[in-house]
Amino acid sequence: MSKEQRTVSFGAQSMRVLALASLGLLMACAGAPVQTQYYLLRSDVEQQSRGLMPSSTFAMGRIIVAPYIDQPGMVLETAAGEIRPAMHHQWAEPLKEGLQQFLQVEVSAAVGEDVFPVDYSEGDLIFDVRIDQLHGSAQGEAVLVAYWWLRREREITETFQFSERESLRADGYAELARAEKKLLKRLARRIGDSLKEAGR
């Protein structure tokens, strides 16, 4: 090994040591990362064997979600008119798709027939749902405000409203997710009742 080669080798080694030392200092400054929690919006009915016949009367139309809840983080109202989307407590899948899945299963169970999306169904009595509010309140409740309407083709025949709250029995986002599911379940039952009434 020549004198020049030794000089270069020493320089490069010194720089590598310096960089590692700096990184070590920086890592030392950083705190432990916060773990993000994911919550899955799934119906309990799915776990049972449903065995329903496809409905030739009813079909599921559009699910419209208010933009402030159409995001990964669960939403909590911190004060009147102020909301806070959670950074570390998120839905496991886009909320709109989760809601579609949840409502389809729950409404099917409510009417006793398997209700498919309108693109796949022969049913001509279609329901559309708009979720206006779905969040935890500062008073320790889950809030769900929704509207739905029944239509044949493009002609709306009836409109309905749902606005209820469910108290949280414990602290935490897992309890909030449970309470919101409970509210959504009630909404699906009401939608099912309105479909059965209109389909008579």
Binding site: G31, V34, G73, L76, T78, R84, A86, M87, H88, H89, G136, Q139, G140, E141, S167, L168, R169, A170, D171, G172, Y173, E175, L176
Partner: peptide
């Protein structure tokens, strides 16, 4: 080092 999410409180 963002503050943690506010925790929903039971009623």
């Amino acid at each position: 080092k963002l503050p943690e999410d506010p925790i929903p409180k039971a009623k």
